[in-house]
Design a binder for these strands. Structure first.
Length: 961
RNA sequence: AGGUCUGUAGCUCAGGUGGUUAGAGCGCACGCCUGAUAAGCGUGAGGUCGGCAGUUCAAGUCUGCCCAGACCUACCA
């Protein structure tokens, strides 16, 4: 039942709704921002200011955005918005990575392979259209996250100008001497007759023939000596090292046998056969069983580590060579190959000695490169058949398929030569072409590389990593260092259709680059700027080379897409006026230490000698509630679109800010629910603030700093000091520090204390009297500050508050800077320490009130009267508030007495005892305080004295609170 | 298998250089209020600080090993 005096109260009132209804209202706000051209207005407002450039790492233009994309974009947006609030000109140019295999595969599904149903040129056109469509889809979602940026003019790696600049940057890197041509084994499908990318390979079980093959040592006497065996009766017996392989067809290409330098090898005598074998010590038992030799059929003569008989890095020549079982050398004997050492060798299976064919295995290739072991010729053609050459012709291998006949022929040769120790069928996981489902082979092909060492690139890049770049968190440095230290040369060529061409001419005989390559590249770039990458593929060599054209071949390889995105420091940061090079920051997930951070660094150092970024900030990956990675197959993904359509963007953003992004970021329904709870608290606090400055016009009603009541002055001062912390959190990219601090402010000092205390004054005092205007002034300052504090994170809500704030202001909170219009306050002796003490006293009193409540002697705190028995210092402090102490404690009466160990109850606070009594006075109908003067006024028999004063008189006077 | 990282109450996080009964907010339970009301206030219960050893008078904090998880790389001859 409403009191007749209710209309005389100043109750809170606001249009600002309690519930955000974010999923519906955020899109409306976005439309408004777009309509007013907010991004451009911010640019204009910050023109001429210091720049802060966060360069966007381009997501791949394929598929819907997932939660990881959302995290990345939101973090970037929070940083950019906070820097903008700090007064920086912080442009954000989002980008997309548009070339490459995944798009080709999608387009293949739609129109077929390039060169089959459609021409390469048409295929590229389809790729371009497809990529554009993907960009549109992702852009819509990114904008929905309320990420502010130049969405009208993003950068695309497939923009003609960008494609041209990618080629130019390649030219620059060639100019500095970092390019070299080499070979590399790649996944090769004999049915496609082409190379396969990693993504086109799938693993299936395959039946293979596994064989143990003997490679006899050329100098067995020396080998025995190396094993420390001196026994003349053995001297004339053959010694072989045994390899195990599941790809017999690669044996013709064998160029070495690898052993592990620190693994123990045994010299085993086969008694019956009268020959010796070298095998890994740990595998002797297994091998003998496999060969059908019983325990008494062999004897281990000696052991030696691999480094004793294998060639070590740095050694000019191999200490031992072995005879290839069947490949002929120039003379009558079979050719010999070196025994080398390699870290890739294990004693897990086989024999501990690895058949090494550099043309057919990555490890083989890498280890061979260390010793300069090279195959003279690739013996297998693109269809997986042995080529024809004198040696293969003689062995009758030419033309046979490595998949069957060729393989069997090799087995036959081995058996014929007596080199085959054992043949067995095994089933193992083996790479297959995902299209043909046929087993693939490894086949070395000519490729282009950016060399880590030929022009000192690795060294320079490492210098940048260690000395000029700031890594956040600090372990990012160790991570990228480790990754760079063991990285091979960067193979930048791909045999693909949808990619930026390696726009080079090489001599048809020598394979040397054209001497005027730098100049030619610029000419090509100009054409690509006009017509895109097709300009190169359509180009006739004569156009640029004239008469020389006959001697040169146009390279048709495309660039690794990591090169595209890696050189956006040039194609975007350098090319766009609003950006800077180097950029202030790159910010991506921790997978990019291998990816974009590295490709950007290497290309920038290669081209310009320095890093493209000053700071690299890394975030972790999202995992589910159990800490497991998100995957569609596990069904534990959290889709950002779903969150946006249910809880809303501000809640997703709050979650990003509230989570420690330096490690794994956990998301689950419960976590999002908790974040929605936190959001509601912040929102409601702001709503209550707005509701209480109802009717407040800052132009006419703002109370000067020196006139504020001490409690209000404290609130203003507290807020001002909190702002320093807020700024520091943003500067330090510590967003969880920010959200936690903000939350505590809303719950403790502000929500739990100040707002609760001033309600009485707000509601009951005269509408335009000083007591109320003083509090409103404080609330106004808090709101001005807080709207800005939350804007980088709760972008929608901040703007919504901004709309509800009185006074002249910018069109959007994002055009504003941090609030600095805090008033100068009077020095009153009521400082922060004073009020913090009061807060503790209040807590102690609450403890006692709760006991009375449990006894049912009181309900609301206004039904109580308290007496505080305090030590002198505390007594003096409390007495300073005089009669207004009761307002702070929210009791109907509060008096202070000297400490008396007998009186009241001991409270939580030492030196303070508290007496709680249920009030005996009548309750004022209007202010709900119980007071002796209720009913003294005949006109208003249900009111207390101060309410009479507030209703009829000039209004009560407040001195402190 | 290797490199980098993570593991503190149900949830999200604080806990410089080792030192009293390990903190906060949320959530939860109970209570109050009904003039912030799909709100607000109060009180309270929750932790062998991933595990095991060790160094030390003293370890969440240092060392080693192990377990679980994340990212990256390699391997499956």
């Amino acid at each position: 039942m409403d009191s007749q005096y209710k209309p005389t109260l100043n109750l809170p009132d606001t249009e600002f709704p309690m519930r955000g209804n974010l999923s519906q209202r955020e899109p409306e706000m976005l439309a408004r921002w777009e309509e007013m051209g907010l991004y451009q207005k911010i640019r204009n407002a910050r023109a001429g200011r210091d720049k802060f450039v966060l360069h966007d790492g381009p997501p791949y233009a394929n598929g819907n955005i997932h939660i990881g994309h959302a995290v990345n974009k939101i973090l970037k947006d929070v940083i950019i918005k906070s820097r903008t609030l700090s007064g920086f000109d912080a442009p954000y140019v989002p980008g997309w990575d548009c070339h490459g295999l995944p798009i080709e595969l999608k387009v293949e599904e739609l129109v077929g392979k390039a060169g089959q149903k459609v021409t390469a040129s048409e295929f590229r056109k389809h790729c371009r259209e497809y990529a554009l469509k993907q960009v549109d889809g992702q852009r819509k979602d990114f904008k929905r996250l309320m990420v502010l940026g130049d969405w009208e003019k993003p950068y695309l790696t497939m923009d003609f100008k960008t494609e041209a600049d990618i080629i130019r940057t390649l030219g620059k890197i060639i100019d500095k001497g970092h390019l070299h041509k080499g070979f590399k084994p790649v996944n090769w499908c004999p049915d496609c007759a082409s190379a396969l990318a990693e993504a086109e390979v799938e693993y299936q079980d395959k039946k293979s023939i596994a064989i143990d093959v003997k490679f006899p040592f050329a100098n067995s006497a020396a080998l025995l000596a190396a094993f420390g065996v001196q026994n003349d009766s053995l001297a004339d017996k053959p010694v072989s090292i045994v390899i195990w392989t599941t790809t017999p067809w690669t044996l013709p290409s064998n160029e070495a046998v690898s052993v592990h330098p620190t693994l123990e090898y045994s010299l085993v005598l086969l008694k019956e056969q009268g020959e010796m074998l070298v095998l890994a010590d740990a595998l002797v038992q297994d091998a003998m069983k496999r060969y059908g030799i019983g325990a008494d059929g062999f004897e281990v003569l000696a052991n030696a580590r691999g480094e004793v008989f294998g060639q070590l890095p740095g050694q000019e020549e191999a200490p031992f060579v072995v005879h290839h079982p069947f490949m002929p050398a120039t003379d009558a004997h079979t050719k010999t190959v070196p025994v080398i050492t390699g870290e890739h060798v294990t004693a897990d299976s086989g024999t501990g000695a690895v058949h090494t064919a550099p043309m057919h295995g990555v490890d083989d290739y890498n280890v061979s490169a260390i010793y300069g072991v090279r195959s003279a010729e690739m013996l297998v053609d693109g269809n997986g058949n042995f080529i024809s050459n004198p040696a293969l012709d003689a062995l009758e291998l030419s033309g046979l398929s490595t998949a069957d006949k060729g393989n069997f022929k090799v087995l036959g040769l081995l058996a014929e030569k007596g080199a085959l120790l054992k043949k067995a069928n095994i089933t193992h996981s083996y790479p297959h072409c995902w299209r043909h489902k046929s087993p693939i082979i490894f086949r070395a092909t000519p490729q282009w590389f950016i060399s880590m060492n030929q022009a000192g690139l690795l060294e320079q890049a490492m210098h940048e990593v260690q000395n000029t770049v700031e890594w956040r968190p600090g372990w990012g440095k160790a991570r990228i260092e480790g990754m760079m230290n063991d990285r091979p040369d960067w193979c930048i060529s791909r045999q693909r259709t949808w990619g930026v061409p390696i726009a080079l001419f090489v001599h048809k005989d020598s394979s040397e680059l054209h001497p005027r390559s730098a100049e030619l590249i610029e000419q090509v770039a100009l054409k690509v700027e006009e017509k895109g990458i097709d300009a190169w593929f359509d180009l006739e060599a004569v156009e640029l080379l004239g008469d020389e054209a006959a001697d040169y071949v146009k390279v048709t390889d495309t660039l690794d897409v990591w090169f595209d995105s890696g050189v956006t420091h040039t194609a975007v940061c350098k090319a766009r006026e609003e950006l800077t090079f180097p950029a202030d920051m790159y910010l991506e997930g921790s997978d990019q230490h291998r990816g974009w951070f590295q490709s950007s660094l290497l290309t920038s150092v290669a081209a310009y000698g320095h890093a493209p970024y000053k700071t690299v900030l890394t975030h972790g990956f999202t995992v589910d509630g159990q800490g497991r990675k998100m995957s569609k197959s596990l069904g534990n993904t959290v889709e950002p679109q779903k969150v946006l359509n249910s809880l809303g963007g501000d809640i997703l953003r709050w979650w990003v800010a509230d989570t420690d992004y330096s490690g794994e970021m956990t998301v689950s329904d419960e976590i999002l629910k908790r974040n929605a709870d936190a959001y509601r608290r912040v929102r409601n606090t702001c709503r209550f603030l707005l509701a209480n400055i109802n009717g407040f016009n800052p132009v006419t009603d703002l109370v000067a700093g020196e006139d504020l009541l001490p409690l209000d002055a404290w609130m203003v001062d507290y807020t001002r000091q909190l702002q320093d912390k807020v700024k520091a959190f943003y500067l330090d990219y510590d967003f969880k520090g920010l959200t936690k601090t903000l939350m505590n402010f809303c719950v403790s000092e502000l929500g739990g204390f100040y707002l609760d205390v001033i309600k009485d004054r707000q509601y009951t005092c005269k509408r335009d009297g000083l007591p109320r205007r003083s509090a409103q002034t404080a609330l106004f300052h808090v709101l001005e500050a807080m709207a800005r504090w939350i804007a980088p994170v709760l972008s929608f809500t901040a703007e919504e508050i901004w709309d509800n704030l009185p006074g002249e202001r910018e069109e959007s909170v994002f055009l504003a800077e941090w609030y600095e219009a805090f008033p100068t306050l009077a020095v009153t002796g009521f400082d922060d320490a004073y009020w913090q003490n009061i807060l503790q006293v209040k807590e102690a009193v609450n403890g006692e009130l709760e006991k009375a409540r449990v006894n049912k002697s009181i309900g609301a705190s206004l039904e109580a009267e308290v007496v505080l028995y305090a030590e002198p210092e505390q007594q003096a402090a409390l007495a300073k508030l005089g009669n207004e102490l009761r307002f702070v404690l929210m009791t109907s009466a509060a008096t202070v007495q000297p400490f008396d160990a007998e009186a009241g109850q001991a409270s939580e606070l030492k030196g303070l005892r508290v007496g709680v009594l249920p009030t005996t006075h009548d309750k004022c109908e209007r202010c709900w305080h119980h007071s002796a003067d209720v009913g003294l006024n005949a006109q208003h028999p249900t009111l207390c004295g101060r309410c009479v004063e507030n209703v009829e008189g000039d209004g009560e006077v407040r001195h402190y609170a």
